[in-house]
Amino acid sequence: MDSLVKHGVILKPTDLEFENLGVLNPAVYQEGNTVHMFYRAAHVGNFSSIGYCQFNGPLDLVQRDKKPIIFPEFIYECHGVEDPRLTKIEDTYYLSYVAYDGVNAFGALAVSKDLKKWKKKGIITPRFSALAYNNLLHEKKIKESDPNALYVKHNNESKHHFNPITKDDAYVWDKNVVFFPRKINGKYAFLHRLLPAIQFASYENLSDLNAEFWSNYIRGLDQHTVLCPKYKHESSHIGSGCPPIETADGWLLIYHATEKSEKGLVYHACAALLDLENPLKVIARLKEPLVSPSETYEKQGYVNFVVFPTGTAIFDGRLYIYYGAADDEIAVASVDFNELMNNLNNQSDENVIS
């Protein structure tokens, strides 16, 4: 992208106990000229909470709290509340995050009216062991070309299915929950990630997201799949990144892609365009990454070669993409919004695996 500018690191860890290991993967909400940032703060031992800071414009840090605003309170998140994303729907803020207990990782939700007081709503993604998940996937005959075959293969190869404490199967990980900023067809809607692809789910009431709902959902997981890994830079897996941005042409989705390489996994920021009323329909998708690790702060850190996008803001016609850099610090890149949309509109896509 010709207009791409990397603005560098804008937030680093401090000596404060809750963030002395790293700061990364921030949720962002833009309110006029103010950028509210809720970031993952990790302390020694890799236990995470969520810190808060504020920017005037895209880059000028003007406030930073000295204590976490959201922290582990329940068994299912005892090892960390991680990787938040933030969306406002009507008069309520929806902050989704990864609840991690040291073995299992689930998508969880907290809500607020004022960005200060948060009420946790618990886990909203499915909870199935590897065996139960596999059985659900196999309840209908799977062709090799089906997306479900991709899930089965990845499930069988996953390293996250053994609980070293109980010696039982662990749960299948479901991460990267990202809400759309308005209801779609009268329902709350979100993207999430059962490896290695991105799925779409919607509901009328949170109570709808029960075991029966998710069992039926997984039986037909291919019908809920938005994006599958397709290009070389997506050779390992992909995941939803920033909350979708509504445009006249569709939902602009900035997502992350993970590439297998000789130096290990490489994380990129990528872009796609989804249909406004049916986000399962992919209108366009860039064939090359939007932002890739090229700077030292992206290539060397707690995890090397990571650009992990989780929030955006728009200033003066430019889209600012906030991301975790090497799982150590928070950095920003920007592109001309119109150039990005023009590039997407010049590239069509189909929901296929290749």
Rank of each mutant, 00 (worst) to 15 (best):
I124P: 00
I124T: 00
T125I: 00
T125P: 00
T125S: 01
T125H: 00
T125E: 00
P126V: 07
P126N: 08
R127L: 00
S129W: 01
S129K: 02
A130Q: 11
A130V: 15
A130P: 07
A130G: 13
A130L: 10
A130N: 12
L131I: 13
L131E: 12
Y133L: 13
Y133I: 08
Y133R: 07
Y133P: 04
N134D: 14
N134W: 13
N134Y: 14
N134L: 10
N135H: 08
N135C: 10
N135V: 08
N135Q: 13
L137Y: 08
L137S: 13
L137V: 10
L137I: 12
L137E: 14
L137P: 09
H138Q: 15
E139I: 10
E139C: 13
K140L: 04
K141D: 15
K141N: 12
K141G: 12
I142Y: 04
I142G: 03
K143F: 10
K143N: 11
K143Y: 10
K143R: 14
K143S: 11
E144I: 12
E144G: 10
E144P: 09
E144M: 12
S145C: 10
S145F: 09
S145H: 09
S145M: 09
S145V: 11
S145W: 12
D146G: 05
D146V: 05
D146C: 01
P147L: 11
P147E: 04
P147D: 10
N148S: 15
A149R: 07
L150A: 09
Y151E: 04
V152N: 06
V152S: 07
H154P: 05
H154L: 13
H154Q: 13
N155M: 05
N155H: 08
S158N: 02
S158P: 01
S158L: 04
S158A: 07
S158V: 01
S158T: 07
K159D: 03
H160I: 02
H160P: 02
H161K: 07
N163A: 02
P164A: 04
I165R: 09
I165F: 10
I165M: 03
T166K: 01
T166A: 03
K167G: 06
K167R: 14
D168R: 14
D168C: 09
D169Y: 12
D169G: 15
A170S: 14
A170D: 04
